[in-house]
């Protein structure tokens, strides 16, 4: 009885507040827009009995999804989300790997402090961290002031409200997600392997490419997914740092819902976004599974 209670409480909570809402999204994505409250049809009418239910299902269709394929905006938004997520994941790797490498090679008594300093930004507001770049990247911002005072540029660079600002924002906010798994992989690495490679004729650089990097691949893949997956559905960064031409699907969904009040289309956008995410999520889980097996 007690066990039943223990299972039932969180189970019912999640069913009611996670699964059911998601099914509602799915259902509304198959409905039509209407000028009503709530602004979609059909409504499930239990009062009408079986006929009501039959009519309800008969009225569902894939119209919204067809609409998504017809309107170039959505196509472009999906593709551009994928591109922005992929490019920023690549940059995050480029920035994060050397930091993780240096941390793993730092003196052992320094490592916990370095770890804490990497994690600390996690606890500060995401919104504030994104916001802090607005002042840096704007046309009269600190970066332009700095570069112009050095005489490196004569005209201010336009970074804010471009995709570049979005890349920087994603790299900045998701950097710890990249560093931590790579650091974990590198820290486990047996130093004797590098010595063995050098002993067998490798220079330091070739020992890195032939031994260190392949052995940290698991961490690199995990880090890339941990950045790519949330970046794909990102909303705050493109809306604060991106320009009006920065298309990301999270932003489109938000606008579809709040500005256009087109709930069915917003729901359809959500369903497609989720479909897009399924592939990387499954790949990520495979990678984790493999890492766990390798550990045993």
């Amino acid at each position: 009885m007690r066990r039943f209670f223990l299972i039932a409480v969180p189970y019912i909570w999640l069913l009611a507040l996670f699964l059911v809402p998601f099914l509602i999204v799915l259902k509304i994505s198959l409905s039509d827009t209407a000028l009503a409250i709530p602004p979609y049809t059909p409504q499930l009418d239990f009062g009408a009995g079986w006929d009501g239910i039959r009519n309800f299902f008969a009225a569902l269709d894939f119209e919204n999804f067809t609409f998504l394929t017809e309107d170039a905006l959505y196509w472009k938004a999906y593709l551009s989300s994928l591109k922005i997520a992929a490019v920023s994941t690549f940059f995050t790797l480029l920035v994060g790997y050397p930091i993780a490498y240096a941390m793993a090679n730092a003196r052992i008594e320094w490592r916990p402090t370095l770890m804490m300093l990497i994690i600390l930004p996690f606890w500060t507001s995401f919104l504030i961290r994104v916001y802090s770049w607005m002042g840096i990247l704007s046309q009269e911002g600190y970066l332009n002031q700095f570069l112009m005072s050095l005489g490196l540029i004569s005209e201010p660079l336009i970074i804010l409200n471009t995709n570049w600002a979005v890349y920087i924002g994603i790299v900045y906010t998701y950097l710890p997600f990249m560093i931590l798994p790579i650091y974990a992989a590198l820290e486990k690495l047996d130093g004797a392997l590098i010595e063995a490679a050098e002993d067998l004729g490798c220079s330091r650089l070739s020992a890195f490419w032939l031994v260190t990097f392949p052995l940290s691949k698991g961490g690199v893949i995990a880090g890339c997914f941990l950045v790519f997956i949330p970046a794909l559905g990102e909303f705050v960064i493109p809306s604060l740092l991106g320009g009006s031409d920065t298309l990301m699907i999270g932003k489109v969904l938000w606008e579809e819902f709040f500005s256009n009040r087109d709930w069915p289309v917003a729901s359809a956008v959500a369903v497609v976004l989720l479909l897009l995410l399924i592939v990387p999520i499954i790949l990520f889980q495979r990678n984790e599974q493999k890492a766990r097996e390798a550990d045993q």
Partner: peptide, 20 residues
């Protein structure tokens, strides 16, 4: 002379076999 240019090879205590 760095390790990679010595005609000396070493068998490590942990063997240090490349796991990949």
């Amino acid at each position: 002379v760095p390790p990679n240019l010595r005609a000396v090879n070493m068998m490590f205590q942990s063997y240090a076999l490349f796991p990949h």
